[in-house]
Design a protein around this nucleic acid. Sequence first.
DNA 1: ATCCTCCCCTAC
DNA 2: TAAGGTAGGGGAGGAT
Length: 1265
Amino acid sequence: MTDEVPSQSSDLFGSDDPTFLEALARAVLPGDAPEVKPEDITQLVSIPADVGPRGVKRSRLPSPTRSPSPLDENQFYGGIGSLKSIIHLNGEEEEADSYIVSDTYGASKFNGWGDYMRRKRAKLQVQNSEIEEQDDETQAASKPKIFRGLAIHINGFTVPSVQVLRAMITQHGGTYHAYLDKKGLVTHVVASNLTPAKVLDFKHMKIVTPDWITKSVEAGRLLSWRDFILHTGEMDRMDEAQGIRTAQKNLLEGFQTQARRAPQHTPASVLPKREEGVKAQKPSSRILGAPISPPVDVSPPVAFDSAAEPENESSLTSLTSAAPAESHDVEAPIHIAPNRLNAHSTDEPTFVKVALVDTLPKPQTPTKLKRPISDLPLVSMTNTSDNLNKRSPSTAAQYSTDLVTCVAAAHIPAYAAHGSNPNAARLMQNPGWAAEHTSAKGADFIEGFYKQSRLHHLSTWKSELKELVAKAQAKVEDDRDGHRPDGPDRGVSMAGHVLPEGKARLDGKGRVRPEDRVIMHCDFDSFFVAASLIDRPHLKGKPVVVCHSQGRAPMQRAGKSVSSTSEVASASYEARKFGIKNGMSLGQARQLCPDVETVPYEFEKYKDFSLQFYTILMAHADDVQAVSVDEALIDVSNAVARAQLAPRADEGGKAPDYVKALAEAIRDDVRKSTGCEISIGASHNILLARLATRKAKPAGSYHLLPEDVAGLLEGLDIDDLHGVGWSIRERMQSNLGIAKVGELAKQPKATLQKLFGPKMGEKLFNAARGIDNAQLESHKQRKSVSAEVNYGIRFETEEQAERFIRDLSREVARRLKNVNMKGRLMTLKVMKRHPDAPIEAPKFMGHGSCDSFSKSNPIGARGGAATDDADIIGEEAWKLMKSFGFDSRELRGLGIQIQKLEGGLGGEAPTGAGQGILAFQKIPSPSKRDREAPEAVIETDSKQEKLSAIEDSDMPKRTESLLDGSPPRETDQKQSVSAPEEVISHPAPAFELPSFTQVDQSVLEALPADIRAELEAEYARARTAPQPQPSRAGPSEVRSPVKTVRSPQDVKHIARQLAPKRNGAPSAAKYSIFKKREPAPVVQIEITNEELQELQIDPGVFHALPGDLQREQLAAQRGVLNLPPRAVVPNAVKPVRESRSPSVGPRRRPVYTANFAPEVSLSKATETPAIRDLIEKWFLAGVDSGPHDRDLKRIGDFLVKCVETDLGMEKAVVVMQWWKHLCQARWDANVGKGAGRAWWEAFRGVKGRLDDVVRKRFGGKLSLD
DNA sequence: ATCCTCCCCTAC
DNA sequence: TAAGGTAGGGGAGGAT
Ligand SMILES: Nc1ccn([C@H]2C[C@H](O)[C@@H](COP(=O)(O)OP(=O)(O)OP(=O)(O)O)O2)c(=O)n1
Ligand SMILES: [Mg+2]
């Protein structure tokens, strides 16, 4: 092992991770603080040397390959003398000026290119003004009509974006054609790239590059298209053909030129070789053998007197030496092999054999160092390393395995200092204690744990915010479509806030885009700490951390105070100067800063601030992507474009930085509202906006311009890139010998892909040049629901383990219900103590080093039907658990995840059927009926329990949940509580299937009894009431299907908070589409409801249609019915891939299975009437129960494919228009519950997906008008 | 090719 | 004391 130590080990301390040294180095800062503003420090340090925005990422060390880092050297010699020296070095080395300087100065390095881009950008922005609808005319009026008479189509991704080009075209007199359907009309096709197929397709057309447009505009006259013919050659160069890429490519070229291309290839031979080497040794090797004597001396630490003001240099010095030393004395030796463990320690004074990291479970490596902390004792490295790099599926994975050198541990010892936590070891001796404080305790343990878990809160909030944002956006859209609820109330929640401003709404169809887009990354500074300091002003300016341990006696000499394994959730910037970082253990933090102040968690406060924050963002942004409780990505392209218009008009001089101005405006709003500082980074893509935030922090904003990108990237550590963590950084270092983004940019894409896979490779390749095509995502629906606990898991008996599994299952079931979903696949995740790890982990009650296993199986209430039942889940989970055959006493972590979800956002309950409930076409299926009580769906007992449980203790604590928080209000959601009960109590009603001819029998049979009953009732109602129309708040909702009830409620809570207003009474009046066309006339076609039913037409809807549509529908329907039942099965092939493993009960799926294949039928329908009919059938089949998830997925997938092609676009539009119409005809778009809500949400969900695609293709949203 | 399972990794 | 959760991207390797 020793020999394996990589040469880099020479820098022992450093080799592994400079974090600690760095921290020490920076500890000096406080002394200088007075003169240096935090921002400056951050910038200086962060750029060249590293230090992520959150301090999370850290550069690895200076391996020989790494370019000399001033910090490193200074650190070692305590030379960190002064901030100045650091600055100086940086400047020399990295030309820091070029990027440290504010954007005002532009990039000195790439002036030529930068200027070009800037000019181009400015120009485009002007053009963009067209975006403003109201300004369109004005803008256009002032431009020469150079494109007059031309009909131009823009194909695929282009640079500039479609919207920009479109604006240019229209403003200059040309006609823009979104589709090519009427080829005859189009005179020119603009494309940056064409697929071979399109080349053929367009062979008779004039295909030009976007330059033709831009150059013509610049020239003020129409240039010859022949000079801009798109050559095949160009196309070939583009990999995936994304216009964006093209632009970025330019960027890249500029960058490369500057950077001077390095030998692109590492010798091919090298690569493979390296790879091998890596696998063989990887972390293990390097880690282990490092000599332990640190360059730094180990003299005793010197404590600062007052945390607040460390003194200058002297302090520095002392601090520097202090840290290491202290570790020594203390239990957590900093530089000495910490990991020795009890179990089998190794006593190598100088060299460590192998330290297996503990793996922190997750990720986050605690210290964020990227490398997981070491929990584990030494382990045989071979073994470990192998596992790391490659594992056979069947092999148990080592949980987060990672090797850590003692050195590493020393740097970030977290709780890796001991073989096992002495405290825990002692306490666990006492059976009584264990029974009361560990998983052995039962359900209470789970609840208590979650209530206190910050990470759990973080995750919960994130998902809640995602939903909130999605709902708010959907409402905005609806409003725009003419749905505007009267009462501001209506929940438009966010919309309400936003709209007033008028900013966000402008988006019309979101026309701006590509490289002109303006993305902002907004993030609170030291969120948890900041929130707590609002009420503790006396702590401002001091090193403060948030953690559970409110450790007393901080000054307690080297005692417990520094052995706390409590994690620091957030550290103030003052604390960071000492090297304290989020995720670090309190003990470590105290070693770095003995007087650090600790404050407790205040989850509810975080939630409140977060809601205020998001509300403000919604008011400024066109689009929002929730990233975290304290962080969000927003698209403010339109807002900026709008702002630019005004000023421009009056002056022609240089334009102020509107982006920066907007960022500051947002910061001001948040500050006024919460009293906290947020920082905002802005740029034209997500990746860069995030990087900009690093420079912006703390309490600032930074607009990263294209010309400054290369300079900034070059000096970053690879793991400063979002998405790059310890693992990738290590592999990068060991395989390629690189640590900086600048070096990464020199790597051939093939090399990266070989090492990290096709996708990651490309991602890294692009990221290295500032390219990021990712779009803001605000419509994605979740794919899994899970619950896991990897803390305090200690069982004495199998019974305890079983009980825990069942309790955990209950928790998962509860969560499923909360989001109104059910799943068909479950995965059990198990963490088992690594054989070589000590019984008690280093971290108090932690999982320590573990092997991790996971196994999945289909679940479902009978026949593979999706389920959310705790008992079913619990049963399956326990079965899986037993199948592992582990000794319960060795378990350290358990998790249950449910996938293949159905149901959805507030939507209706996923019904029980395992397959698509609705058949697009009905099949005369030999129905069979069994009517037993719906076992799968209803379980009286368990359900009852769950409900009550939920009410009492929602997750962590209802108070903390974003969802609730507000007092019950409004009528609607309230009923929820009672509803569930009803359902539950529902004794399996034995019903008769009414004779609804319009519903597929098989479908009905598949429905749970309760839902079936409702379906029945609904039909009866529809029959008698020809015009159900406006969703009367009353009836339909009241009887919303069972379980659904509950979840919507929670969701609403959250929405309410954002938007205090909700419109109580959805005015039955506004329907958009048809209203616009004509005042929904009241029927007058002669046909009876019975007849309609036979035609599978919903009478209620039918009667609401205008005459022509009625006729159209009738005709279409008749035609469809005449069609052979073909569509039904043609695609039997994929109809439903049933779950393969039986494990669950009997299933009589086949029959239903074949039924549903909406996309199949749809794909064949080409006439509008036929398409509408298909959609309607599907809709009607589930009109009362809500859409079935699987159907939704299929249709969504199908439509997405449609909008990806010009030809399919039309079909997709027809489908969506009709779907929307069907919904509008019977429910208010804001209906709060029942099937209406489910359908609306389903519609919005799919619409969102399509908009995402359309946005990429054309920069706007799919218009259904 | 594409899917599926079992992980790994990352982020907050 | 301490509360190391969770969703989703992605990859390896086997099955289809
Ligand atoms: N390992 C971590 C990281 C973060 N958080 C929590 C506390 C943080 O306050 C919040 C936000 O995380 P950030 O990464 O945004 O960190 P901060 O907001 O604390 O600091 P900053 O954003 O200024 O770097 O998430 C946590 O509990 N544990
Ligand atoms: Mg933050």
